[in-house]
C-alpha cells in the first residue's frame, strides 16, 4: 500500500531514513520515537504536506509525487491530533466534508456519499449524537467523530497524528481498539504516531520505531518487548 524506497525525511537535515519498507492493507502501525525524532515530519511527508529529501515513496505502486491533490485525497485520509470543533458545525455536516474529494463543484451529496457517511456513523456508533454541534462534544467524542470523517473519505490509507494525546486512559484504550478493528474489518492501512507503548504492545499493532542512533525507521518483530523499544527509540 505505502512503499518506501531509500527515503530520507526531514527539513534541512535528515531526521528519518527508511531504506526499504512496505506498509500493507489490513494492518495497523504505531509510529514510536522520542520527541523531535521526526514522527510528525514522516506523517506529513506521507500526506504530501512536506516533500522527501531523497528517495521515492509509492502509494499503490504509483509514485507519490505524481498524484494530484484530489487523487491523493481519495487515497489518504488524515486525522490531526486534536479537532477543536467548529461553531455551528454539526457532527453529520463535519463527517460529510470527508466526501469532498468525490462531490461535484457545488459539494452536493449523491447516493454513494450519503451511504458512506451513514456507514461511517454506524461503524463508530455515533448515531445518537450526529445532530450535535462539534463544539459541544468531549475530547474523546470529537476524536471518534474525526475518525468517522476519515472513514467517510473512503481511502485505503488513514494517517493519524498522535490520536491519543488528549484522551484519558479509558478513551485511549477504546480508540486504539476501534482503530485496530477498522484496519481489520475495513481492510485499511492505518498508521498513527503515539507515545502509548504499553497499549500498542497489548494489541495486535505493528510497531515502527525511529532508531535513536542511526535514524533508521525499524519495523519491529511482533514479540518485541517494552525494554527493547525503550533502548532503540529512546536510548534508555
Amino acid at each position: 500500500m505505502i512503499t518506501f524506497n531509500k527515503c530520507e525525511i526531514g527539513y534541512k537535515s535528515v531526521l528519518v531514513r527508511i531504506p526499504e519498507l512496505n506498509l500493507s492493507a489490513g494492518h495497523i502501525y504505531a509510529l514510536i520515537g522520542a520527541n523531535g525524532s521526526g514522527k510528525s515530519t514522516l506523517l506529513n511527508t506521507i500526506i504530501n504536506k512536506k516533500s522527501l529529501l531523497g528517495g521515492e515513496l509509492f502509494i499503490d505502486s504509483k509514485s507519490h509525487a505524481t498524484f494530484s491533490a484530489k487523487e491523493l485525497a481519495q487515497k489518504i485520509a488524515y486525522v490531526e491530533s486534536k479537532f477543536d470543533g467548529v461553531e455551528y458545525l454539526t457532527v453529520e455536516q463535519y463527517i460529510s466534508l470527508g466526501r469532498a474529494p468525490y462531490t461535484d463543484a457545488f459539494g452536493r451529496l449523491g447516493e454513494d456519499d450519503i451511504k458512506a457517511i451513514s456507514d461511517a456513523i454506524t461503524i463508530l456508533s455515533l448515531n445518537s449524537f450526529k445532530d450535535k454541534y462539534t463544539l459541544n462534544l468531549s475530547d474523546g467524542e470529537r476524536q471518534l467523530v474525526a475518525i468517522a470523517r476519515a472513514l467517510a473519505q473512503a481511502t485505503p490509507i488513514i494517517i493519524l497524528d498522535e490520536p491519543t494525546a488528549f484522551l484519558d486512559y479509558g478513551n485511549r484504550i477504546k480508540l486504539i481498539q476501534t482503530l485496530t478493528k477498522i484496519a481489520l474489518q475495513e481492510n485499511k492501512c492505518i498508521v498513527f504516531s503515539s507515545h502509548d507503548i504499553e497499549l500498542c504492545l497489548d494489541s495486535s499493532i505493528q510497531i515502527l520505531i525511529v532508531n535513536q542512533q542511526d535514524k533508521n525507521l525499524e519495523l519491529c518483530a511482533s514479540d518485541i518487548t517494552k525494554k527493547e523499544i525503550l533502548r532503540i527509540g529512546f536510548g534508555i
Partner: peptide, 17 residues
C-alpha cells in the same frame, strides 16, 4: 464547497484536496 471545507482550517482543507 471550498469555504465549507475551509472552516476546518488550512491543513485539513489541503488534505481534503
Amino acid at each position: 464547497k471550498p469555504l465549507n471545507i475551509l472552516v476546518l482550517g488550512e491543513k485539513s482543507s489541503v488534505i481534503l484536496g
